[in-house]
Design a protein around this nucleic acid. Structure first.
Lengths: 242, 242
DNA sequence: TGGGACTAAAATGTCAGACAATTAAACGCG
DNA sequence: CGCGTTTAATTGTCTGACATTTTAGTCCCA
């Protein structure tokens, strides 16, 4: 890790990469303390601010945490699921918004992934998951709910579905896909009639999962996919006309 | 975005957050130039090194790029699919390695996601995708191939499967799941007999996709899942005995 | 001998000013 | 008009310093 060629370009990036590689390769384990900034500066033969910039890069990726004081310093950080979620959501959201991903593509991806969870969720969902789904369905039926709140509840419902598969890796992968869709979903205006259809399908999904009937769940999800796609198309047309 | 309370803690983190929020919310569009470091320092009433640390954080997340020279500066960066892939793979790999995710969980997640792609891939795969799969199958059958190369080829095969769905969002989501599995897969020793079984299933999958028979593809993937899980268990037992 | 307050040290966080390197635009000259 | 030169703007880096935070140790006193 102590290597650093005489490339005069982007010193701080090179240092960050060297340290990052050491962490990823497992040379540095969780909670291990990095050398102090001054020591690193000596090792890499650069100034302290340069080292600091490198450390900030790593901190931005949640790879290290810093702590002040006598026994302080930079420590290799355990990446938690929550942080990984958050990072993935940020990345996915940006990717979708910056690359003009169309509604159809994003929607298709989202529901394809959710349908992958349904069989597992039908097997393993706990009463807790079912209760969450029922609660969100109830919330979605409340009159006067704003479109945004409706979407929030929709996300929470699907999140419960995914979590029901009891596979944290799957939950992590899907968090990005589902939440990143939100800005796109928020462009849709949900009429009462739209909501009734969606609530009906949600109820069918929850029922199917409760009965551990994965075929039914899959069918309802397929219908929900198709219906959401229709709504999206309508919303796009409405936007185009405006 | 110009807000910055008198919290004396973590100035650079606050500044980074302010700018990041401006980008994510869409206040700053792609390729828009940020104020120069000196101007930002004035605006936030901090020194230039502090601003620089904040900018490095953003650069680490691929949110901005910097350019030197007269018309240089920091620009909002378009996040490309490739960069998003890379970021996701890094995050996923770290998450799996740091949180001791067991083989079973990761494997289940990976194949569940792949099975979600199979129906779409059966519909849309191009001759190119099929050719890639066939080529990788051929490579896997070569005698004397190291375990690591075999895994590489396996990843390439599945990558082609996923890309066949012709949905970049799906490809992006799955890249992390599949590639992050590699360190775990690399712990397995693939005997010739193991390889033969896997190659047989790969061939079945490729055949099914060529015939646009998604049911067959799904079945073969299910068998591959089960078989990979078995191999994983054996590898874990072998490790435990050692 | 024990405990509490004080001090010192180590580390990060921040600042100020300076210089180098790079790039593009402005300028001037043939 | 075109091409080379200068110049200005901007990032990249360095040096040195001070502020802040936290821990460890020391010293004094009961």
């Amino acid at each position: 890790m102590k290597i650093d060629p005489k490339n005069k370009a982007d010193l701080s990036a090179q240092i960050a990469k060297a340290i990052r590689d050491a962490i990823i390769s497992g040379d540095m384990i969780v909670d291990e303390r990095l050398p102090s900034e001054s020591e690193l500066a000596d090792q890499f033969d650069v100034s302290r601010p340069t080292v600091r910039e490198a450390l900030k890069r790593l901190a931005a990726q949640n790879l290290i945490r810093t702590q002040r004081g006598a026994t302080g310093g930079a420590f290799v950080r355990r990446l938690s699921y929550d942080e990984a979620y958050a990072q993935q959501i940020t990345t996915s959201t940006l990717l979708l918004s910056m690359n003009a991903v169309d509604f159809e593509t994003a929607c298709e991806a989202r529901f394809a992934l959710e349908r992958a969870c349904a069989p597992l969720s039908a097997q393993r969902r706990t009463p807790d998951h079912l209760a969450t789904m029922r609660a969100e369905i109830h919330r979605q039926a409340q009159p006067g709910l704003s479109d945004e709140r409706f979407c929030d509840s929709d996300v929470a419902f699907h999140r419960a579905l995914v979590d029901g598969a009891n596979n944290p890796v799957l939950s992590y992968q899907l968090a990005g896909a589902v939440e990143a869709m939100q800005p796109l979903m928020n462009m849709i205006t949900f009429t009462q009639r739209n909501r009734d259809v969606i609530i009906g399908l949600h109820t069918r999904i929850a029922d199917a999962l409760e009965m551990q009937n994965s075929a039914d769940a899959d069918e309802a999800l397929a219908e929900l996919t198709a219906y959401t796609l229709t709504l999206g198309e309508e919303a796009m047309e409405a936007r185009a006309r405006r």
